[in-house]
């Protein structure tokens, strides 16, 4: 199975490919259009600012190729953190930016309105909203590692798979058709994170 990790110059590629290798797959980090189009599974990682992320995808000419893979070929894709946010229609991080628009959602600042510290950094429990192949064998209250100041607000509530609480309830994971996204970092969430990645690679 060809697992492509989309390299658009932002984020923790090495940790994602390390985790995928640990699970016995041979991932490759790429921004080559042919390789992305021929992949069986795609992972869109990312750490950083939304505007930069979209700018890099544009300048590498990857928008069309990703649209073709994901929307036409229906290749399963997992967005992690910023990667999941890029799948939304619009983001309000440092201005207003258009995203890939695969999910009817917007990206907003974690505005908890309390005295909780932002960014939200560390291990936090998730609550499963519904059953999903991505969470096979994973229960509510399992801890995942989060590090973010913005979050995805899904307009399509049926896409929400898991939520997390930090001042407010926000979407921790979503799934629509072949498109999956997690706000947390499975590649940094110890054995439970590896389990989720394995679910994506073997069941989704």
């Amino acid at each position: 199975m060809k697992v492509a990790i989309v390299d658009y110059g932002l984020g923790n590629l090495r940790s994602v490919s390390g985790a995928v290798s640990k699970l016995g797959y041979l991932p490759f980090e790429t921004h080559d259009k042919e390789e992305i189009l021929s992949a069986d599974k795609l992972i869109l990682p990312g750490v950083g600012a939304f505007g930069d992320g979209m700018k890099n995808l544009h300048s590498l000419g990857l928008i069309e190729c990703l649209n073709q893979s994901v929307l036409e070929k229906k290749t399963p894709i997992l967005g992690i953190c910023l990667g999941s946010q890029l799948m939304a229609k619009i983001s309000y991080e440092f201005g207003k930016h258009e995203g890939l628009g695969w999910i009817n959602a917007s990206v907003k600042k974690l505005n908890s309105g309390t005295n909780l510290r932002i960014p939200h950094v560390g291990w936090n429990g998730i609550v499963l909203i519904k059953e999903d192949p991505l969470f096979t064998g994973i229960l509510s209250n399992e801890l995942f590692y989060f590090v973010h100041s913005f979050h995805v607000c899904c307009e399509e509530k049926q896409a929400i798979v898991a939520e997390c609480e930090y001042g407010i309830q926000f979407t921790a994971a979503f799934h629509k058709d072949n498109i999956f996204g997690t706000q947390f970092h499975p590649e940094k969430s110890q054995s439970i994170g590896l389990k989720l990645l394995n679910n994506f690679l073997s069941l989704c």
């Binding site: 090495r14 940790s15 390390g18 290798s21 640990k22 590090v147 970092h185 940094k188 110890q190 994170g193």
Partner: peptide, 12 residues
């Protein structure tokens, strides 16, 4: 750094 990144699945 890369040894840790490959073998530890926690933030580094």
């Amino acid at each position: 750094v890369s040894d840790f990144a490959r073998n530890c699945f926690v933030p580094l």
